[in-house]
Nucleic acid binder design. Structure first.
Lengths: 221, 221
DNA sequence: TAAAATTAGAGACTAAAGTTCCTAAAAAAT
DNA sequence: ATTTTTTAGGAACTTTAGTCTCTAATTTTA
């Protein structure tokens, strides 16, 4: 009772207790710290204690909010992608399926090359190498904005009569996500640059989608 | 010197030292044990000590041969797939691309439904949930026999003049592996049955590949 | 067949994820 | 303003992957 280790009587309160953050503010700070760490260090090299220390908090605080290291890192990354998705504001509507897709790819390219995101491929390949398949599929590959957006493009194209979806299987909406994922993971290139994305769109995806276009009559060029 | 814990003088040697296995024999036993374990328990619940104990050996023996838990489990699974790949003996050559693909899918179906492999999807989705993307891509998705075989089918088809590969991108050889992987991981179904595989081949892959067929003249049905 | 080189097996050790329990701030309720 | 509820933060603890070292069995070499 007499000497509680916390009552170092007289020592300026600045160094002892700095106004505890809680709720959203604390959470935002933690994710921000995590993001900073993942920009500098690869996933495997980051420890939960590091994240906690970096955010001036404690491991138990982290586990109260997220279930695993993968969860917290993915959550941190998602703040960024949803941020940028919001910036993209309205869904592309150029009047043609290919135009819409190209705008989406432009945007991905911007996302990847913009200052903040140059490392995102490195991130995915090197730093997120330890993230499990299950996590990846659950949280990124399916039901993500990418596949959603592609689906919307096709719906618009269908309304315009540009495309015939009679024999178009649902699975084909996920193709861009799958092929991009493949490109991110299965290559040794350090960067996925603009030309690489162009290649994927022009030579892989469009050839797949083109046969579903109803260019004038029955068969395309 | 007098009482070395190992010299329990007189105790039948059967219980003390049972002829140490080494080399290939030991390795085969370990992989076999691992396979047995993964059939019963999910990946995350298996420990290296369990594997070692199960194979009546020691953890250090495991790490002498494989670099990680993922490695040893993948190695164990691969013994099975390469086993079956060997049984498949010659590459399908039915005279048509679709026929060849269908035979490959038949074979995958057999693999998945045969006694030994009913659990392989559960394995992939539940028990291998902890395997990293990187490991997966490096060791399964790319440069695997599946993509290789698809490539061969297309080469044969090209030789027959059945298909025109001028604008066919390399990435499309990997499509079956990617789509199957997606099906394995991103669904909540317990089984990938025959009809599911049929659907993937008929409604997803064939529509993608068909436009490259040179059925008679320039454009197909 | 004895000596030398390998390699299995036992077990201690390290590091980091994830858990638990406790104390003390901060916020909400009275 | 005081009590109650919630939640942050500290720290010890458990588990398991992965490392390291030592001893003894097996194989190879001479």
């Amino acid at each position: 009772m007499a000497n509680n280790p916390h009552n170092q009587q007289g020592v300026s309160k600045a160094s002892t207790t700095q106004h505890r953050r809680r709720g959203k503010k604390l959470e935002a700070d933690i994710l921000d710290s995590t993001l900073n760490l993942i920009k500098q260090t690869k996933y495997e090299a980051i420890t939960m204690d590091m994240i906690a220390k970096h955010a001036h908090t404690n491991k138990s605080v982290l586990y109260r909010r997220w279930n695993s290291k993968a969860d917290i890192v993915l959550a941190a990354l998602r703040t960024q992608t949803t941020d940028l998705a919001a910036k993209m504001k309205q869904i592309p509507n150029t009047g043609s399926l290919e135009g819409d897709l190209r705008e989406l790819f432009d945007w991905i390219s911007t996302l990847l090359t913009s200052m903040h995101y140059t490392n995102i491929i490195g991130l995915m390949r090197e730093r997120l190498g330890g993230i499990s398949m299950r996590d990846y599929f659950d949280k990124f590959a399916r039901n993500n904005f990418l596949s959603q957006m592609v689906r919307t493009f096709f719906e618009h194209a269908s309304e315009r009569g540009e495309v015939d979806l009679t024999h178009f299987d649902e699975a084909l909406y996920d193709l861009p996500a799958l092929v991009l994922m493949d490109a991110f993971y299965a290559t040794d290139d350090t960067t996925i640059d603009r030309s690489r994305l162009d290649h994927i769109l022009s030579d892989v995806l469009m050839p797949v989608y083109r046969p579903f276009l109803t260019t004038g009559n029955g068969d395309a060029k």
